[in-house]
């Protein structure tokens, strides 16, 4: 656009300098710093000596830590899957059956989306702990006689995660279903397709961008989650997020903590690339 002269260049430099400085200095440099730390060696009192020490990465394969990392990815994958299973029908319902209530229904999904995750996780602490609502309900239904331990289990963590991230799945699904041209459904019907055929061969494939965006939006924060396992998992259901935190906190092993962080970021990046490639990057257009 426009003639490219000195003014053009100056304006561009002016527009780009702030972001370059800010993200460069406070996002990229810190990442490079922990990359360097991840090959360093932690001192006894918390200091760090730089060097080339792959030991921090090898430590990840210690069964003690490997179990935590595997648990993290299993819980994140299950969270994504359950959110999809619960979220898709709802997004479908809002889009195609919501009629004049459509905007109100989607606003009802946006409220929890914008609400503090910490508070929403806390609500499950109240429900699951001690002889709370959950236990009272179980006793009322005659499933148990006395209160059972519900909090501090991996099921509690999974519950909290699904609850927290469900809106992150529904909103992108709705955004892509909303663009759907309903005439396509009619065309499929006219050509003799049944309801299920229409859904599986027309509607669902066209909603793939929403499925991809929703899965990424749920999987990444769940895999890095730190608050929910702290509040609902306790010391028995530790996830990678809490492990990283403890290395930078009480354990004071910054080198290992850095290696874990780099590994988590790299694994997630690889997962996204693999996923996007499998389902097709072209489908990401317009997300």
């Amino acid at each position: 656009m426009g003639g490219k002269g000195r003014g053009w260049t100056l304006r561009l430099v002016g527009l780009l300098t702030p972001i370059t400085v800010w993200l460069g200095l406070f996002f990229l440099v810190p990442l490079l710093l922990i990359l360097a730390y991840s090959f360093g060696k932690s001192g006894v009192y918390g200091g760090i000596t730089l060097g080339f020490n792959p030991g921090n990465y090898l430590k990840v394969f210690d069964p003690l830590y490997l179990e935590i990392i595997i648990r993290t990815f299993v819980i994140a994958a299950l969270t994504t899957l359950i959110c999809f299973a619960l979220g898709y029908p709802l997004a479908y319902f809002i889009t195609f059956k919501g009629r004049r209530w459509r905007n109100a229904l989607i606003l009802l999904v946006m409220v929890p989306f914008w609400t503090s995750l910490l508070i929403r996780a806390y609500s499950w602490v109240v429900i699951l702990s001690g002889n709370g609502i959950a236990n009272k309900t179980l006793q009322f239904l005659g499933i148990t006689d006395a209160p059972v331990t519900l909090i501090f289990t991996s099921q509690a963590v999974l519950m909290g995660m699904v609850y927290s991230y469900l809106p992150f799945m529904i909103l992108p699904l709705y955004a892509s279903l909303e663009k759907f041209d309903t005439r396509l459904k009619e065309a499929a019907k006219d050509l003799g397709a049944s309801r299920w055929e229409t859904f599986w061969r027309v509607t669902f494939p066209l909603s793939m961008p929403g499925v991809i965006a929703g899965s990424i939006l749920v999987f990444i924060p769940s895999a890095g989650e730190f608050v929910i396992p702290q509040l609902l998992g306790g010391s028995r259901t530790v996830m990678t997020g809490s492990l990283i935190q403890s290395q930078f906190g009480s354990a004071r092993d910054w080198a290992f903590g850095s290696a874990l962080s780099i590994m988590l970021a790299a694994l997630l990046l690889a997962a996204i690339l693999f996923y996007v490639r499998r389902v097709g990057a072209d489908k990401l257009e317009g997300v």
């Binding site: 972001i19 990444i220 895999a223 990283i244 930078f248 850095s258 962080s261 988590l264 996204i272």
Partner: peptide, 27 residues
């Protein structure tokens, strides 16, 4: 590169952003 950095900043797990900034500020 600018695009990639901007998207990377939105998908980077918060815990990684948090600890890397802590390390940076301390240093």
């Amino acid at each position: 590169a600018a695009d990639t950095t901007i998207y990377a900043a939105t998908v980077m797990p918060e815990i990684v952003v948090g600890v890397s900034l802590l390390a940076f500020f301390v240093a």
